[in-house]
Design a protein around this nucleic acid. Structure first.
Lengths: 203, 203
DNA sequence: ACGATAAGTAATCGAGTGATAACCTGTCAA
DNA sequence: TTGACAGGTTATCACTCGATTACTTATCGT
């Protein structure tokens, strides 16, 4: 949880402030999930008062849904960007490697992945569950738009889910604690592990 | 959340009552996670008073840790049982199929999977994170004990994580809502989808 | 200059929350 | 039969939560 970047807290346009609170909420929810994060924690992270957070977004649930949709949207957009950059051949392993790298690059912003993960887990709450299914379906569709088989897309997403889980349980930071955890970590993250090291070190 | 099976709530030995509360806690935590579940909700599910739940387990956190450890233990044990039943050849796809089926059979007890999932997501809480890493490492070790490569074990676990996520977001119940979600669901669960249908229908 | 609108806060509320303390009561050994 | 311990509950506390209300003040068009 980084410290709030707003030192003087001057007046701000509604749109700017909204975005600032949204970013703060992403950090806060990433840390402790929907149920585990208070609107006051979001407010403190954003450097505003708690009632103001509620007023901007109406409800804690509405705020989370917006944060979650933004997170999954970013994942899908990152994939789409890679696919647009150059032609993608679903039978070329190197192309899949590129796509996987796009995902691990998002690991630098662990918060988006963590928010996504928390949204998935909180699927027991109806509205969050609906958002989660929509987000997952959207990502699946982006992958499938390469023309690959459903199974191939499924496998790719499954690897992503494992990465999410590993990140959520802070495996990279604690890989040294257990030999088998270290093996799984290096094996899951591959060469990307070094890249996320800076995001991993202090916490 | 099934209704409590204890109608008359007669006296019971400490051990029996403890187990009963533990089972109730599994159902409760499966539904809303660690932060989202109150000790009172557990108590109501178990048919006892809230202070008694606290007294048996000391702390809500201690209770969750025990529930979580039990859940991951069951997963690992289920795999181990399959491996012990008959010799396992890591190069034989049919054997992996058997192992995968062992996992989807656990889907009938969605609660264990959901608890595991929630524990992973709650890794931000230090003690839960440590338990989550230990649980994951344990499962990884069981898979690796087949003599397969780390990559093969990783892929197998990744598929499991996808199933967890799909279950958590109630994808099987809502597969009809979206074509791509249906595709991903049938593709992820395969023929096991029919088997979990009974556990899926009413909720 | 000024007044209206928009940005933001302080105060507060009612409903949970996890935990503690004090108390009650079946059951069983002697 | 009785008394003591184990299995349980009721009452309550200090606190946190999301949300509402009413208030303040910066900013900007005229």
């Amino acid at each position: 949880m980084s410290s709030k970047p707003t030192a003087p807290t001057s007046r701000m346009s509604a749109g700017d402030r909204r975005q600032l609170v949204l970013d703060a909420a992403t950090r806060a929810f990433a840390h402790a999930g929907y149920a585990g994060t208070s609107t006051d924690a979001v407010a403190r992270e954003a450097g505003v008062s708690q009632p103001y957070v509620v007023r901007i977004f109406g409800t804690k649930l509405d705020l989370f849904l917006e944060v979650f949709a933004h997170a999954t949207g970013r994942i899908a957009a990152a994939f789409q960007r890679v696919l647009a950059e150059q032609p993608f051949d679903p039978d070329d392993e190197a192309d899949w490697e590129r796509l996987g790298t796009a995902y691990t690059e998002l690991l630098a912003d662990r918060d988006f992945l963590l928010v996504m993960m928390h949204g998935f887990s909180a699927g027991g709450t109806d509205e969050i569950g609906a958002a989660a299914r929509a987000g997952m379906a959207g990502i699946f569709d982006v992958i499938r738009s390469t023309g690959c088989s459903d199974e191939r897309a499924r496998d790719f997403i499954a690897q992503g889910m494992l990465l999410n889980v590993m990140i959520a349980m802070r495996a990279p930071e604690h890989a040294g604690d257990s030999g088998s955890l270290a093996a799984l970590t290096t094996c899951a993250f591959g060469e990307s592990l070094a890249r996320i090291a800076p995001a991993v070190a202090p916490d």
